[in-house]
Design a protein around this nucleic acid. Structure first.
Length: 869
RNA sequence: GCGAGGAUGGUGGAAUUGGUAGACACGCAAGGUUGAGGUCCUUGUGGCCAAUAUGCGGCUGUGGGGGUUCGAGUCCCCCUCCUCGCACCA
């Protein structure tokens, strides 16, 4: 046999990438006669270099895009950069690099890396959100939203460090500033908001239209996030008289069980409700609560605490006098900032009552039971029958909700109300590297938008980054301006926008290539949008997607787009994980800490792991965790490209797990993928050689092998396609391996038997099926085997349905729940006939001997189950 | 703490609607090739017990416990552990 050529992936990949680039192969235009398909992957934050999470996300997108192209769709597949955000500013503070330079450098590096992976992007449509030509349109939309009342200003609480100003939650973990370890307090500051709550009902209803294309769990989480709850506002008169205290409750059926009230520590009426003798203690509590913040009580599970204010409210239904508390878990933003507490039927109230020794009053009993407050260990929150509730006693609690609210409305004590857990979107950031909010503060004229002809408000390059407060705020040349209305001296707004704003509309920007003078063109958006398939990380399941859905509706209401929903179908991909390598070290005071190592610094010898250069430094192989720099369990995609090539990286990342699940990186798995490609390459070489010089015809093959080969190829095409349609990439690849394994072991025999056409057809089917996954190698082999152009010029493989069905089946027969026999029958045999054959079968007789056949269940063409006794 | 999801061999996973659990791959083992191997090929591989069993030897097995069903990895209830999100990270 002649010596085989080596699989030189780097040569092949570079050549095809160059060809695609030069021919503008992935540049697309509107095409009225072709069905369109917009495949969008979540654009990356340009943090420096791409990581495996990106490779996974973008490979999934590329496989979908290339598959849809082969299916005949006009596919839009763009890429861009979510380029504004905190890390650029952190780099400026810590390393003295300007955020703009840092970002643009990172973009250049990452773009080069993405190109090396062979993704089919139309790079003409690239966007970078830090480009003033991008964010100017956001400023324009903001001003229009402001004029419509969708954007507004109000005060809100922020994390505040005396030294470093406003901090993000992640910079204020544990109530401590990440830079100076100083205390972080909650401080009131004015901030800009977008009125997402006005769209709450629409965003909720819209989820119904998405149920076909979005994962259920994302829809459920969005529903819960919006948190629409129907309940009642109830006015509790105060014992001392005056304005009653209004609370919101979703459980008016428990009104007779109220034993105390709680209000948020920042409730405007706190001082008024506090008696003079309680003032000091309450002040201490409020101060402490401000230091902690409600968020940490909720998220970090801190103790729920409260303080008695000294005054009382009166239950409007039963006249009971109940104490009023301030509590650190009551949110001012939700409802009215005040709640009625029913410890018997609300778990949080129950815990609070137990710690503060407050009474518990049962007003709902489980059917046929009677609860005793003294022996309860948790609140009873299920349905039941009302007791001790005056005229409502004896009613089912569900109907009591309606009856009691009717009563409240009739008596003028309360009313039906709907509240949302969703709060308005606070978009102000006291940071430099964001889109400037285009507003001007004038002492005479108030808050005035920047006039259209002065847009964009560009970020000034000259700014100093010392980590202490907002650089824009300290830059006089930026701050000082004149009022567009009166011409007087005025101050520019120095807040920038939340970077979630840019990622709320980038999908529309991609639709147009000609956008020097427009955000995008309506005709382009009308053709390409909405996005047919959106693909990105699970971590964005709530916020990004909700904001983008909201912003799309804002753009719709401002006349920019004609769609309600931006993303028709959604695929959420899991994270890329890897085992950790570490050793533990004593830090002196007896506590041991983990010191992590990069996997490439560790080596296994004689079954033990140790550091490469120090055989006496043992290393523990830890659990598989999400790849992260801090744990050092990262693999640089570029190294994988150098060692194995883009096709191998793409194939492995798609073959080892379903896309929604986490993917465990495995170097061995990568090698397995590489081996498969090598074998494909080698087989193609063989096949080309056979074609050039047909092997001398041996014995004609009449053993059914050619038919088996054809059937397998057609069945594989069918199943592979079905798998792609449901994004089951890993099983699709498994099927392609089965076809490959068959050809590798039987191909030569078939060729020798004069069945070269059969082998060739099957192999070319394999090449075409794999093309979206391994585009470089398959394009190469397609040409080698005499195909014109590339596999994608020839559409998606089809199959002959007749070759996909088996006419004879082997039905499993289970007796007493165990498979005891296999019954050969033709497909479609009538159940009665199957039953007869089964009961006559010797093996079945062996197992039913001495027993009574009670029942025979025949599932046609599937299984036979015999129930015996 | 609240909301959402998950758990199947030594490992990643497969089983599309309740119908043969473990496809495909990794690893491992044996044999062959190479005779440098991080190469290649063949065979085997859930566990336990058997030892060629008159047609496929038996038992057991999908995080733990209970239930529904002729039949449960799949449906229901309880528990444990893991992951994601929680509004200024993106």
């Amino acid at each position: 046999m002649t010596e085989r050529k080596e699989y030189r992936f780097s040569e092949i990949e570079a050549r095809w990438q160059k060809s695609w680039d030069e021919h503008g192969r992935f540049c697309v235009e509107r095409h009225p006669d072709k069905p369109k398909c917009f495949v969008l992957v979540m654009f990356p934050y340009p943090s420096g270099r791409i990581h495996m999470g990106h490779v996974r996300n973008y490979t999934i997108g590329d496989v979908v895009a290339r598959y849809k192209t082969m299916k005949g769709f006009n596919v839009l597949h763009p890429m861009g950069w979510d380029a504004l955000g905190m890390p650029a500013e952190t780099a400026a503070i810590e390393r003295g690099i300007h955020p703009a330079d840092w970002t643009w450098n990172n973009i250049a590096t990452m773009k080069r890396q993405l190109r090396a992976l062979g993704f089919s992007y139309d790079w003409r449509r690239e966007v970078a959100t830090c480009d003033p030509d991008y964010y100017r349109w956001e400023q324009k939309v903001f001003i229009e939203a402001f004029r419509k009342g969708i954007a507004y200003r109000k005060t809100s609480l922020v994390n505040w460090c005396r030294e470093h100003g406003v901090l993000a939650n992640e910079q204020a973990e544990g109530g401590i500033c990440w830079r100076c370890s100083g205390p972080v307090v909650q401080k009131e500051m004015p901030a800009w908001y977008l009125k997402i709550t006005d769209y709450a009902d629409e965003l909720l209803d819209g989820l119904k239209t998405l149920s076909q294309g979005w994962p259920d769990y994302v829809i459920r989480q969005q529903e819960n996030w919006i948190g629409r709850s129907v309940g009642a506002q109830v006015r509790f008169p105060l014992e001392k008289g005056g304005e009653p205290l209004t609370i919101f409750t979703t459980r008016p059926d428990t009104l007779y069980g109220v034993t105390f009230m709680s209000i948020a520590p920042e409730h405007p009426r706190l001082a008024e409700l506090t008696t003079p003798e309680r003032r000091d203690e309450v002040a201490r509590f409020v101060e402490k609560a401000a230091r902690t913040g409600v968020r940490r009580v909720e998220q970090e599970g801190l103790a729920k605490e409260g303080v008695f204010l000294g005054s009382y409210a009166v239950n409007p239904l039963n006249g009971r006098k109940v104490p009023i508390f301030a509590a650190n878990f009551v949110l001012m933003e939700y409802g009215t900032g005040a709640i009625m507490a029913v410890p018997a039927h609300d778990q949080r109230d129950f815990e609070f009552a137990k710690t503060c020794d407050l009474p518990i009053e049962v007003v709902i009993n489980p059917p046929g039971q009677e609860l005793d407050p003294a022996s309860m260990t948790s609140a009873y929150v299920e349905e039941g029958v009302l007791v001790r509730s005056a005229a409502f006693s004896g009613m089912n609690n569900r109907s009591a909700i309606e009856a009691i609210v009717d009563h409240l409305e009739k008596e003028g004590i309360g009313s039906r109300t709907i509240h949302y857990r969703l709060r308005d979107w606070g978009i102000s950031r006291q940071r430099y590297w964001g889109c400037p909010i285009p507003m001007i503060h004038c002492d005479q004229c108030g808050v005035v938008p920047v006039p259209d002809d002065q847009l964009p408000v560009k970020l000034p390059y000259e700014a100093s980054f010392d980590g202490k407060g907002n650089p824009l705020d300290k830059l006089e040349s930026f701050r000082r301006t004149t009022c567009p209305t009166c011409g007087g001296e005025a101050r520019r707004e120095t807040d920038t926008m939340d970077t979630f704003v840019e990622s709320s509309w980038y999908q529309f920007r991609y639709a147009s290539t000609d956008r020097a003078n427009a955000m995008f063109h309506r005709s382009d958006v009308d053709y390409w949008c909405p996005v047919d398939q959106y693909i990105g990380g699970v971590e964005h399941a709530i916020m990004h997607l909700l904001y983008a859905r909201f912003f799309t509706r804002v753009l719709r209401d401002l006349g920019y787009v004609g769609v309600d929903e931006p993303f028709t179908r959604l695929l959420t991909q899991g994270m890329v994980c890897m085992e950790t390598y570490y050793h533990t070290e004593d830090v002196g005071d007896g506590t041991r800490v983990k010191r992590f190592h990069f996997p490439e610094d560790c080596i296994q010898e004689d079954g033990r792991w140790h550091l490469k250069d120090h055989a006496d430094s043992p290393v523990t192989v830890g659990p598989v965790e999400k790849m992260s720099k801090s744990k050092k369990n990262v693999v640089d995609p570029e190294r994988i490209l150098a060692d194995y090539g883009a096709d191998t990286a793409r194939l492995f990342i798609m073959s080892d797990s379903p896309p929604e699940a986490g993917l465990n990186w495995s170097e061995q798995g990568v090698k397995g993928a590489y081996r498969f490609l090598e074998r494909i390459f080698a087989f193609a070489e063989d096949l080309a050689a056979w074609k050039a010089t047909p092997p001398s015809a041996g014995q004609p093959s009449d053993d059914g092998l050619p038919l088996e080969c054809r059937k397998l190829a057609h069945k594989t095409a069918k199943a592979f396609t079905a798998d792609l349609e449901r994004f089951s990439f890993n099983t699709a690849i498994a099927r392609s391996r089965e076809l490959g394994n068959f050809l590798f072991s039987k191909g030569a025999a078939l060729a020798a038997a004069g069945q070269l056409d059969v082998v060739s057809e099957a192999f070319l089917t394999l090449v075409r099926l794999l093309h979206p996954f391994v585009p470089h190698l398959t394009s190469e082999l397609w040409g080698l085997l005499g195909g014109t152009g590339e596999p994608s010029d020839h559409g998606w493989p089809t199959w002959d349905e007749a070759l996909c069905v088996e006419d004879s089946l082997e039905l499993p027969v289970t007796i007493g729940g165990r498979v005891r026999a296999k019954l050969p029958v033709p497909r479609g045999t009538a159940p009665a006939e199957v039953e007869k054959l089964a009961l006559e079968s010797p093996l079945v007789l062996k197992w039913t001997e001495g027993k009574t056949v009670l029942k025979v269940i025949v599932v046609p063409d599937k299984i036979i189950n015999i129930v015996v006794k």
